[in-house]
Design a protein around this nucleic acid. Structure first.
Lengths: 248, 248
DNA sequence: CGTTTGGTTGAAATGTGTCAAACTTTGTGG
DNA sequence: CCACAAAGTTTGACACATTTCAACCAAACG
């Protein structure tokens, strides 16, 4: 049988570990969760707005995104999801989904029935805390995105997104060296940042000409990290990465 | 001694009740929380980005907002808070605040020490669930705002905001009839929606001329609810109002 | 090796921002 | 209770970031 994920370790455990300190017993309880694993193709909906799921989806490998579509048919990507994320954890407490979820690259995902997660939370309050904390970090990322989309020019938005993705992927152990894979297109960058593909393209050119980053067909090369951070006004505080391990 | 809030009942209980079903014992435990009440003037910071609060703030009366300021000094308002909201509940689990919080009208707020909230959550898992659920609804609102800011024109954004505020305030028992008070300025509307005050003004004029709404110095009059909803593509699903009372 | 997907570019249109001034209401101190 | 200041709203002219439309190009893929 295949390993649960390319790295061989359970990405969910890794994620919870990064957000909280769990005991071996707790970690064991998480890995013991009955999980139905599926491999999905790129550009496939996993769940849709208005669904009432009875299970949550755990990202094991690949890239996915949450999104909404306006009445005029414009798509807004709300978040990118990487290994370890539980993109629809909200469904555990909110019956109706208010956004859709789709793969953007081939993905391996695990489905866990709500009842199992609820039992786990009942039994292990610290796991509840870790999951809750995870949703609070997600909300912090939403706030940062709102600020970007609402108040920063295209140039900064794109720089900011690249910084965020690299920091998140590094924290998840998905990236080591610099030229790294981020499986999205200029179109998806636009949909995430409230921009047109065309304008993303032009702005990418500008960033490239200024020697900050190159992004081409999913290959991201950061030439000047400091410059990119500055261009994107990127301050990783909102990702709440190290800070919280010490929390009660 | 003054009542805790104008309505006389504890807005926090009302809020938790709207999100969950609590027993009398649980309700009693919430009202028994030691809370330090303060009256604040308008336009005053309550907590600031980078603070490490040891308490949470409960809105008892008035309007407040969460916000961030970009490097170029532009403000993005992330959320409006009304009675019953706990705008910085995140600080219970995330050490460092990633946004500031300020009053926009005179406010009465209550401060509760984290330790008391944590004890309460330990003792009453269903209260944990209710609070968690509240943060998930907040996140759902962020997602909707991102969609508005990223993909809807100014006209729709403003219409949408008015719809949302009225529905929320009605759910909180703060509004009955139509001409109602919403204590914010055109400037604050702009900061919330990623627009300029000037452009908000012009768009407001347009909405007024089309007979949908009038907004003047905090007095909101909705002339055509259906038309306004349509203009703002407003669908209240994301507020998760009734749906969840039936939840486990 | 043609077809598809994603990227690149130009010209023109437009929504929103900027700057600057005037107007109106509200609140306040004399 | 007036006069004045302060805060919020309104308007005009102009600038600019971003969109739209339309085409072309380049890589990836079966």
């Amino acid at each position: 049988m295949d390993a649960i994920s390319p790295s061989g370790i359970n990405p969910l455990i890794r994620k919870l570990d990064s957000v909280s300190i769990l005991s071996d017993e707790e970690r064991g309880a998480v890995s013991g969760l009955p999980m139905h694993i599926r491999d999905l193709k790129a550009d496939q909906d996993i769940v849709r707005e208005r669904d009432r799921p009875s299970q949550c989806c755990v990202m094991l490998d690949g890239f996915a995104c949450s999104y909404k579509v306006t009445a005029e048919g414009k798509r807004q990507i709300l978040a990118f999801h990487i290994a370890g994320d539980v993109p629809d954890l909200q469904s555990l407490h909110l019956k109706v989904l208010d956004n859709s979820l789709a793969t953007i690259s081939p993905c391996r995902v695990g489905f866990i029935q709500h009842e199992h997660l609820l039992h786990l939370c009942e039994r292990y309050p610290r796991i509840t805390g870790a999951l809750w904390r995870g949703t609070l970090v997600d909300a912090a990322v939403f706030r940062e995105w709102m600020t970007s989309i609402g108040r920063r020019p295209a140039y900064s938005r794109i720089a900011h997104l690249f910084c965020e993705m690299v920091v998140r992927m590094r924290a998840a152990g998905l990236v080591r060296e610099c030229p790294c894979q981020i499986a999205f297109t200029q179109n998806e960058i636009g949909d995430a940042l409230g921009l047109t593909t065309v304008h993303v393209n032009r702005t990418l050119k500008q960033l490239r000409e200024e020697g900050l980053v190159t992004f081409n067909r999913g290959v991201l090369t950061i030439h000047e990290w400091e410059g990119l951070k500055e261009a994107g006004e990127f301050d990783p505080t909102y990702l709440h990465l190290e800070t919280n391990r010490a929390a009660a």
